[in-house]
Amino acid sequence: PATAPAASPGPPYFNQETLQQRFQMLIDSARERWTYAIFWQSSVDMASGNSFLGWGDGYYKGCEEDKRKRKAASAASAAEQEQRKRVLRELNSLISGAGSSPPDEDVEEEVTDTEWFFLVSMTQSFVNGEGIPGQALFAGSTTWIAGADRLAMAPCERARQAQVFGLQTMVCVPLGSGVLELGATDLIHHSTEIMSKVRSLFSFNSVEMS
């Protein structure tokens, strides 16, 4: 996947700890089963001066498929699984310090499609209105895509990728300094309840966020 461009440091639009709390309050208490939430932060590319959306933070709750696929054969090929595990081992070493201790057993467990989709998201970015997150920010309106067929037909590589990895619902809500994306392996139709929660939890300005 493409690597996100170097971003200007910019103002601290959010505090990761409070953002995590907001993610959890939103997803853990929701009537629907959301798999993850991601905040795409609006930043400026230092080289070109163009604005783009890059990884801000995310919360991966998981889904039933995680449990099933770790017990049964994975949908991914053996070679694909091996590559995912290799990347996970390297990331684990990066975080815990290479060679400091033997790798945890969990690193050798199957990396499910939705876990992989979430991990890959950390490397992605969207310039000026591109992709579902970029379009939502540009248009200033929420994009709600429910259904694997609709994701597959969306004019956005990320949406199509989401469908390939088993997601059925993707929602992008523009916020002041970025976009909140929600994803689910369940089919979730528009919910005024979740939108109301998003508004109450994330209706901040840059001063409140920093």
Binding site: Y60, D66, K67, N92, L94, I95, E109, L119
Partner: peptide, 26 residues
């Protein structure tokens, strides 16, 4: 992985930690 910017390390560390919990409780 070497190119993972510092800002994403916290997200990654949190994901790996939560994954460990999910795997052990499965």
């Amino acid at each position: 992985p070497r190119a993972v910017p510092q800002a994403r390390k916290a997200s990654l560390a949190r994901f790996l930690e939560k994954r460990k919990e999910r795997v052990s409780s499965a």
